[in-house]
Design a protein around this nucleic acid. Sequence first.
DNA 1: CAGTATCCCGGACGATACTG
DNA 2: CAGTATCGTCCGGGATACTG
Lengths: 130, 130
Amino acid sequence: MCDGYDPAKCTTVSEMLARLGDKWTVLVIMMLDDGPQRFSDLKRMVVGVSQRMLTLTLRALERDGIVERTVYPTVPPRVEYALTDLGRSFSVPVKALGGWVFANHDNIQTARVRFDNRLPDSSAKIGKAA
Amino acid sequence: MCDGYDPAKCTTVSEMLARLGDKWTVLVIMMLDDGPQRFSDLKRMVVGVSQRMLTLTLRALERDGIVERTVYPTVPPRVEYALTDLGRSFSVPVKALGGWVFANHDNIQTARVRFDNRLPDSSAKIGKAA
DNA sequence: CAGTATCCCGGACGATACTG
DNA sequence: CAGTATCGTCCGGGATACTG
Protein backbone atom coordinates (compact mmCIF):
# COMPACT_ATOMS: atom_id res chain seq x y z
CA MET A 1 0.00 0.00 0.00
CA CYS A 2 2.86 2.31 0.82
CA ASP A 3 5.22 1.64 -2.07
CA GLY A 4 6.23 4.95 -3.53
CA TYR A 5 3.95 6.83 -1.17
CA ASP A 6 4.69 9.49 1.39
CA PRO A 7 6.30 7.70 4.36
CA ALA A 8 4.59 10.12 6.76
CA LYS A 9 1.21 8.96 5.49
CA CYS A 10 2.23 5.33 5.89
CA THR A 11 3.16 6.04 9.48
CA THR A 12 -0.29 7.52 10.04
CA VAL A 13 -1.88 4.44 8.50
CA SER A 14 0.03 2.25 10.96
CA GLU A 15 -0.96 4.48 13.85
CA MET A 16 -4.64 4.39 12.96
CA LEU A 17 -4.55 0.62 12.48
CA ALA A 18 -2.83 0.21 15.84
CA ARG A 19 -5.56 2.31 17.40
CA LEU A 20 -8.32 0.26 15.79
CA GLY A 21 -6.55 -2.85 16.97
CA ASP A 22 -6.56 -1.88 20.62
CA LYS A 23 -9.10 -3.31 22.94
CA TRP A 24 -11.77 -0.58 23.14
CA THR A 25 -11.54 1.92 20.28
CA VAL A 26 -13.89 0.24 17.84
CA LEU A 27 -16.46 -0.47 20.52
CA VAL A 28 -16.45 3.20 21.55
CA ILE A 29 -16.79 4.37 17.95
CA MET A 30 -19.71 2.00 17.44
CA MET A 31 -21.47 3.30 20.53
CA LEU A 32 -21.00 6.90 19.42
CA ASP A 33 -22.15 6.05 15.92
CA ASP A 34 -25.65 5.85 17.40
CA GLY A 35 -25.35 9.38 18.76
CA PRO A 36 -23.60 11.38 21.51
CA GLN A 37 -23.10 9.76 24.89
CA ARG A 38 -22.04 10.81 28.36
CA PHE A 39 -18.87 9.38 29.89
CA SER A 40 -20.75 7.30 32.44
CA ASP A 41 -23.15 5.98 29.81
CA LEU A 42 -20.26 4.91 27.61
CA LYS A 43 -18.68 3.21 30.60
CA ARG A 44 -21.86 1.23 31.13
CA MET A 45 -22.35 0.41 27.42
CA VAL A 46 -18.77 -0.70 26.75
CA VAL A 47 -18.90 -3.65 29.12
CA GLY A 48 -15.62 -4.41 30.84
CA VAL A 49 -13.79 -1.17 30.14
CA SER A 50 -12.03 0.47 33.08
CA GLN A 51 -12.41 4.16 33.84
CA ARG A 52 -8.77 4.64 32.99
CA MET A 53 -8.90 2.91 29.62
CA LEU A 54 -12.13 4.64 28.60
CA THR A 55 -10.49 7.99 29.33
CA LEU A 56 -7.34 7.10 27.43
CA THR A 57 -9.31 5.76 24.48
CA LEU A 58 -11.50 8.86 24.27
CA ARG A 59 -8.49 11.21 24.60
CA ALA A 60 -6.70 9.48 21.75
CA LEU A 61 -9.78 9.66 19.52
CA GLU A 62 -10.28 13.31 20.46
CA ARG A 63 -6.66 14.07 19.59
CA ASP A 64 -7.09 12.56 16.14
CA GLY A 65 -10.24 14.59 15.54
CA ILE A 66 -12.51 11.55 15.56
CA VAL A 67 -14.56 12.50 18.61
CA GLU A 68 -15.50 15.83 20.17
CA ARG A 69 -15.68 16.39 23.91
CA THR A 70 -18.24 18.84 25.28
CA VAL A 71 -18.29 19.90 28.91
CA TYR A 72 -21.50 21.19 30.44
CA PRO A 73 -20.62 23.48 33.38
CA THR A 74 -23.02 21.92 35.83
CA VAL A 75 -22.42 20.32 39.17
CA PRO A 76 -21.88 17.48 39.17
CA PRO A 77 -20.09 17.85 35.83
CA ARG A 78 -21.62 16.44 32.67
CA VAL A 79 -19.43 15.57 29.69
CA GLU A 80 -20.69 14.41 26.34
CA TYR A 81 -18.74 12.68 23.59
CA ALA A 82 -19.80 12.67 19.96
CA LEU A 83 -18.31 11.64 16.64
CA THR A 84 -17.08 14.55 14.54
CA ASP A 85 -17.71 14.72 10.79
CA LEU A 86 -14.28 13.15 10.40
CA GLY A 87 -15.28 10.46 12.87
CA ARG A 88 -18.48 9.63 11.03
CA SER A 89 -16.49 9.48 7.82
CA PHE A 90 -13.97 7.18 9.47
CA SER A 91 -16.66 4.84 10.71
CA VAL A 92 -17.64 4.02 7.12
CA PRO A 93 -14.52 1.97 6.18
CA VAL A 94 -14.35 0.64 9.74
CA LYS A 95 -17.86 -0.74 9.47
CA ALA A 96 -17.03 -2.07 6.02
CA LEU A 97 -14.21 -4.06 7.55
CA GLY A 98 -16.47 -5.32 10.32
CA GLY A 99 -19.04 -6.24 7.71
CA TRP A 100 -16.48 -8.27 5.81
CA VAL A 101 -15.61 -10.27 8.93
CA PHE A 102 -19.29 -10.88 9.61
CA ALA A 103 -19.84 -12.05 6.05
CA ASN A 104 -16.78 -14.30 6.11
CA HIS A 105 -17.04 -15.50 9.69
CA ASP A 106 -17.72 -19.08 8.66
CA ASN A 107 -14.85 -19.15 6.19
CA ILE A 108 -12.45 -17.99 8.89
CA GLN A 109 -13.74 -20.45 11.47
CA THR A 110 -13.52 -23.33 9.01
CA ALA A 111 -9.96 -22.40 8.13
CA ARG A 112 -9.01 -22.29 11.81
CA VAL A 113 -10.49 -25.71 12.54
CA ARG A 114 -8.70 -27.19 9.56
CA PHE A 115 -5.41 -25.64 10.65
CA ASP A 116 -5.76 -26.71 14.27
CA ASN A 117 -6.79 -30.28 13.43
CA ARG A 118 -4.26 -31.14 10.79
CA LEU A 119 -1.43 -33.49 11.60
CA PRO A 120 2.07 -32.11 12.16
CA ASP A 121 3.34 -33.80 9.03
CA SER A 122 0.52 -32.96 6.62
CA SER A 123 1.06 -29.42 7.70
CA ALA A 124 1.75 -27.81 4.37
CA LYS A 125 0.96 -27.85 0.72
CA ILE A 126 3.76 -29.48 -1.24
CA GLY A 127 4.90 -27.65 -4.32
CA LYS A 128 6.46 -29.21 -7.38
CA ALA A 129 10.20 -29.19 -7.06
CA ALA A 130 11.50 -26.05 -8.72
CA MET B 1 -21.90 -2.90 15.09
CA CYS B 2 -22.57 -5.86 17.29
CA ASP B 3 -25.88 -4.93 18.89
CA GLY B 4 -28.24 -7.83 18.46
CA TYR B 5 -25.67 -9.78 16.49
CA ASP B 6 -24.09 -13.13 17.11
CA PRO B 7 -21.54 -12.62 19.92
CA ALA B 8 -19.25 -15.20 18.33
CA LYS B 9 -19.04 -13.08 15.19
CA CYS B 10 -18.31 -9.99 17.27
CA THR B 11 -15.45 -11.87 18.90
CA THR B 12 -14.09 -12.70 15.47
CA VAL B 13 -14.32 -9.04 14.46
CA SER B 14 -12.26 -8.09 17.52
CA GLU B 15 -9.73 -10.79 16.76
CA MET B 16 -9.28 -9.71 13.17
CA LEU B 17 -8.98 -6.05 14.18
CA ALA B 18 -6.39 -6.98 16.80
CA ARG B 19 -4.49 -8.84 14.11
CA LEU B 20 -4.60 -5.89 11.72
CA GLY B 21 -3.47 -3.66 14.57
CA ASP B 22 -0.33 -5.63 15.29
CA LYS B 23 2.97 -4.46 13.98
CA TRP B 24 3.46 -6.49 10.81
CA THR B 25 0.26 -8.07 9.52
CA VAL B 26 -0.87 -5.30 7.18
CA LEU B 27 2.61 -4.90 5.74
CA VAL B 28 2.79 -8.62 5.01
CA ILE B 29 -0.64 -8.63 3.37
CA MET B 30 0.34 -5.66 1.22
CA MET B 31 3.53 -7.40 0.08
CA LEU B 32 1.60 -10.56 -0.80
CA ASP B 33 -1.04 -8.53 -2.59
CA ASP B 34 1.53 -8.04 -5.34
CA GLY B 35 1.96 -11.79 -5.72
CA PRO B 36 3.48 -14.81 -3.93
CA GLN B 37 6.76 -14.35 -2.10
CA ARG B 38 9.37 -16.53 -0.46
CA PHE B 39 10.02 -16.28 3.26
CA SER B 40 13.41 -14.67 2.82
CA ASP B 41 12.07 -12.20 0.29
CA LEU B 42 9.30 -11.16 2.65
CA LYS B 43 11.86 -10.73 5.38
CA ARG B 44 13.80 -8.36 3.16
CA MET B 45 10.72 -6.45 1.94
CA VAL B 46 9.15 -5.95 5.36
CA VAL B 47 11.97 -3.82 6.72
CA GLY B 48 12.66 -4.29 10.40
CA VAL B 49 10.72 -7.49 10.98
CA SER B 50 12.49 -10.21 12.94
CA GLN B 51 12.54 -13.81 11.77
CA ARG B 52 10.47 -14.78 14.77
CA MET B 53 7.76 -12.17 14.20
CA LEU B 54 7.53 -12.84 10.47
CA THR B 55 6.99 -16.52 11.22
CA LEU B 56 4.35 -15.81 13.85
CA THR B 57 2.57 -13.30 11.61
CA LEU B 58 2.48 -15.71 8.67
CA ARG B 59 1.29 -18.61 10.86
CA ALA B 60 -1.59 -16.54 12.21
CA LEU B 61 -2.63 -15.46 8.73
CA GLU B 62 -2.35 -19.03 7.50
CA ARG B 63 -4.52 -20.25 10.37
CA ASP B 64 -7.24 -17.75 9.45
CA GLY B 65 -7.15 -18.86 5.81
CA ILE B 66 -5.73 -15.53 4.60
CA VAL B 67 -2.44 -16.88 3.29
CA GLU B 68 -1.37 -20.25 1.90
CA ARG B 69 2.00 -21.81 2.58
CA THR B 70 3.63 -23.95 -0.07
CA VAL B 71 6.76 -25.99 0.55
CA TYR B 72 9.00 -26.98 -2.35
CA PRO B 73 10.91 -30.12 -1.35
CA THR B 74 14.28 -28.89 -2.47
CA VAL B 75 17.47 -28.45 -0.56
CA PRO B 76 17.87 -25.89 0.77
CA PRO B 77 14.12 -25.64 1.39
CA ARG B 78 12.05 -23.12 -0.49
CA VAL B 79 8.75 -21.90 0.96
CA GLU B 80 6.33 -19.60 -0.77
CA TYR B 81 3.51 -17.61 0.73
CA ALA B 82 0.52 -16.35 -1.23
CA LEU B 83 -2.81 -14.77 -0.47
CA THR B 84 -5.75 -17.13 -0.74
CA ASP B 85 -9.03 -16.10 -2.38
CA LEU B 86 -10.22 -15.22 1.11
CA GLY B 87 -7.06 -13.19 1.64
CA ARG B 88 -7.49 -11.25 -1.58
CA SER B 89 -11.08 -10.59 -0.60
CA PHE B 90 -9.93 -9.43 2.82
CA SER B 91 -7.40 -7.04 1.36
CA VAL B 92 -10.19 -5.03 -0.28
CA PRO B 93 -11.70 -3.50 2.90
CA VAL B 94 -8.21 -3.30 4.43
CA LYS B 95 -7.00 -1.22 1.52
CA ALA B 96 -10.18 0.86 1.71
CA LEU B 97 -9.29 1.70 5.29
CA GLY B 98 -5.73 2.54 4.32
CA GLY B 99 -7.08 4.68 1.51
CA TRP B 100 -9.27 6.60 3.95
CA VAL B 101 -6.28 7.40 6.16
CA PHE B 102 -4.29 8.53 3.12
CA ALA B 103 -7.14 10.76 1.99
CA ASN B 104 -7.65 12.22 5.47
CA HIS B 105 -4.03 12.37 6.53
CA ASP B 106 -4.00 16.18 6.66
CA ASN B 107 -7.24 16.35 8.64
CA ILE B 108 -5.81 13.99 11.25
CA GLN B 109 -2.49 15.83 11.48
CA THR B 110 -4.23 19.19 11.83
CA ALA B 111 -6.45 17.83 14.60
CA ARG B 112 -3.40 16.50 16.44
CA VAL B 113 -1.53 19.78 16.25
CA ARG B 114 -4.59 21.66 17.51
CA PHE B 115 -4.99 19.22 20.38
CA ASP B 116 -1.32 19.25 21.36
CA ASN B 117 -1.00 23.06 21.20
CA ARG B 118 -4.11 24.13 23.03
CA LEU B 119 -3.83 25.52 26.54
CA PRO B 120 -4.79 23.32 29.49
CA ASP B 121 -7.78 25.53 30.29
CA SER B 122 -9.19 26.01 26.80
CA SER B 123 -9.11 22.28 26.60
CA ALA B 124 -12.76 21.59 25.87
CA LYS B 125 -15.84 22.81 24.14
CA ILE B 126 -18.25 24.31 26.65
CA GLY B 127 -21.83 23.22 26.33
CA LYS B 128 -24.88 25.23 27.38
CA ALA B 129 -25.84 24.30 30.93
CA ALA B 130 -28.48 21.63 30.68
C1' DC C 1 16.77 -21.40 3.69
C1' DA C 2 13.33 -21.44 6.85
C1' DG C 3 12.41 -22.07 10.63
C1' DT C 4 12.31 -23.16 16.45
C1' DA C 5 13.90 -22.22 21.32
C1' DT C 6 15.15 -19.15 24.94
C1' DC C 7 15.76 -14.96 27.30
C1' DC C 8 14.52 -10.39 28.32
C1' DC C 9 12.53 -5.73 28.36
C1' DG C 10 9.05 -2.06 27.83
C1' DG C 11 4.59 -0.81 27.37
C1' DA C 12 -0.47 -1.92 27.43
C1' DC C 13 -3.85 -2.66 30.52
C1' DG C 14 -6.48 -3.60 34.99
C1' DA C 15 -7.28 -2.49 40.00
C1' DT C 16 -7.47 0.70 43.33
C1' DA C 17 -7.42 5.08 45.60
C1' DC C 18 -8.00 9.93 45.52
C1' DT C 19 -10.19 14.77 43.80
C1' DG C 20 -12.65 19.12 41.84
C1' DC D 1 -19.76 12.66 37.63
C1' DA D 2 -15.68 12.53 35.39
C1' DG D 3 -11.76 12.29 35.80
C1' DT D 4 -6.13 11.77 37.54
C1' DA D 5 -2.41 9.16 40.04
C1' DT D 6 -0.05 5.14 41.28
C1' DC D 7 1.10 0.43 41.32
C1' DG D 8 1.52 -4.26 39.58
C1' DT D 9 0.94 -7.76 36.00
C1' DC D 10 1.07 -9.74 31.63
C1' DC D 11 2.57 -10.38 27.09
C1' DG D 12 4.02 -8.50 22.46
C1' DG D 13 7.96 -8.45 20.32
C1' DG D 14 13.27 -7.89 19.76
C1' DA D 15 17.97 -10.26 20.13
C1' DT D 16 20.36 -14.21 19.89
C1' DA D 17 21.51 -18.95 19.30
C1' DC D 18 20.57 -23.39 17.44
C1' DT D 19 18.66 -27.04 13.65
C1' DG D 20 16.72 -30.05 9.62
